[in-house]
Amino acid sequence: MSDDISRRLALAEQAAREAGAKALEYFNHRDQLVIETKRDAQDVVSIADREVELLINGQIARAFPDDGFLGEEFGLQAGSSGFTWVVDPIDGTSPFVNGMPNWCVSIAVIHQGEPVIGVIMAPCQQECFVSARGQGATLNGKPLHVDPSRTMQNHVTGFGANSYVTPERVGEIAAGITAVGGNFFRNGSGAMMLAWVAAGRLVGYYEPYMHAWDCLAGYCLVNEAGGWTHAFNTDGEALLRGAPVLAVAPGAKADLLKIARL
């Protein structure tokens, strides 16, 4: 692993852990938060999201001032180093503000268009998923590997949706999973469910429309754990737009690709 990546990996894990601790403090006092809506009534945000993103951004800016930074709350700051950090300070804000533990901090680093670092911290579970290109994936230091014997028929498939996806399409996805003999799961955090694919808790995850900050850390984790991911376009303005996301263990790839129509 190059020194450029190893130094950023160390900071990514440190920042994720510190951001997770800060977010957990807000979570434990969420009755004091002012909740705002963004695109629709299901798309919520609070000061916790913004303060956690500022914490991560500040650490990165001090250590790597020439790196780019894309955060869900404050947008893109271009860099000149060739590395761009892609951050969701609290993925699963709706579960967060409603007192459910299904939320996490997601930090990715991309280089030449590909995620080379992915760290996801789930504070309520005290689980830290860490990965880097060519270095494998771990959960609290234990190596992660997808199980090639797992299929949609003998395991559980995660899927997600939002207001960008029609109700009809949501129904089609659920029907498609059950039609092949599978079962489906959703917890409100796409980033966490991608980490769960890497950990073998889910055989795959599909969502028709996700943003880069939601998926790129999870993509690195799944790839390094031996899974397959559908390419996410990070070129230019495409990095700021949503796209289909699919991550899956080898034994479920063919079935889930048909359901996703990719």
Rank of each mutant, 00 (worst) to 15 (best):
A108E: 00
K22Y: 09
A217V: 10
V119Q: 11
S2A: 06
A212P: 02
A132M: 12
G227S: 14
D3T: 14
D49K: 11
G136W: 05
A108T: 09
D3I: 08
A198N: 13
P208R: 05
A191I: 10
S163I: 06
P167Q: 04
K253I: 00
G242K: 09
I56Q: 10
N140K: 07
P95G: 05
I90P: 06
A19M: 14
V180P: 00
E25V: 12
G176T: 02
F69M: 09
A21M: 13
N140R: 09
A238T: 09
P89V: 06
V119I: 14
D67V: 02
M193L: 09
A161Y: 05
A174T: 08
A254K: 01
A174W: 04
R39W: 08
Q59L: 14
A254H: 02
A179K: 11
I177T: 03
H145V: 06
E168Q: 12
N187F: 10
A137M: 03
V86P: 00
M193V: 08
G79T: 14
Q77W: 02
I47A: 15
V170I: 14
G160M: 06
T84E: 03
R241C: 07
G68I: 03
S46R: 10
L240I: 10
L202P: 00
A137C: 04
F27L: 10
D4M: 09
I47D: 13
G71M: 06
G251Y: 01
M100I: 08
V165M: 07
D235H: 14
Y26I: 09
T157Y: 06
A179C: 04
I90K: 04
V87G: 01
G200F: 04
E18L: 15
Q42D: 15
A195H: 02
G141Q: 13
T93W: 08
A175Y: 11
H145S: 12
H111M: 12
R150M: 01
K142H: 08
A179G: 04
G204T: 01
P123D: 03
D67S: 10
R133V: 14
A175E: 13
A217I: 13
F74M: 14
F27S: 07
P89N: 03
L239P: 00
H155S: 00
D214H: 14
V156N: 01
E72N: 13
S81W: 02
M100V: 05
F27A: 07
V146K: 00
E172R: 12
D88C: 06
S46A: 10
A63W: 05
G136A: 08
V203E: 01
E172K: 12
A217N: 05
C215L: 12
G118H: 10
E237L: 10
A78P: 05
W196S: 01
P244K: 11
Y26V: 11
L216N: 00
D4P: 07
Y209D: 11
E13A: 13
P95H: 12
R17C: 06
V109L: 03
Q126K: 15
D147M: 03
G242C: 11
V222K: 01
